[in-house]
Amino acid sequence: MKIRQVSVFIENKSGRLSDVVEFLGENGINIRALSLADTSDFGILRLIVNEPEKAYKLLREKDFTVGATDVVAVAVPDVPGGLASVLGLLKKNDISVEYMYAYVEHSAGYAVMIFRFEDTDKTLELLQKEGVKLLSGDVIYSE
């Protein structure tokens, strides 16, 4: 149930972000979700794309600094307090979230959140045991 996320180093210069997305677009890579963490000096762009391995390879060849990480797509009930219930569960089990961001599309009755955990495997096991709805790569990449 792990999702492959591609991260890209973005230098703090105008046009750098558009360079990346334009390059991916030209190569038929579709961005499904993204988050940009930035400081005044640089940014870290995290991407969920339709073909993560291909995107990773293409970006590397183009001399971007890239990383690949496993993240988890959690379907959060699309009701008030939905996210709180998931975070509460994590807190109760002493699991820290490194970062999270929203996935663009909704699935029926759910909002999808991308989570990066410190220990992905352990957390996955817990979430599955607790019956939290997770989305697989197949769904996320192609939906």
Partner: peptide, 15 residues
């Protein structure tokens, strides 16, 4: 110059 080994997806680690 950055490279894959000194680049992190987590801002905290990068900092």
């Amino acid at each position: 110059e950055t490279n894959d080994s000194i680049f992190f997806d987590e801002m905290k680690k990068q900092k």
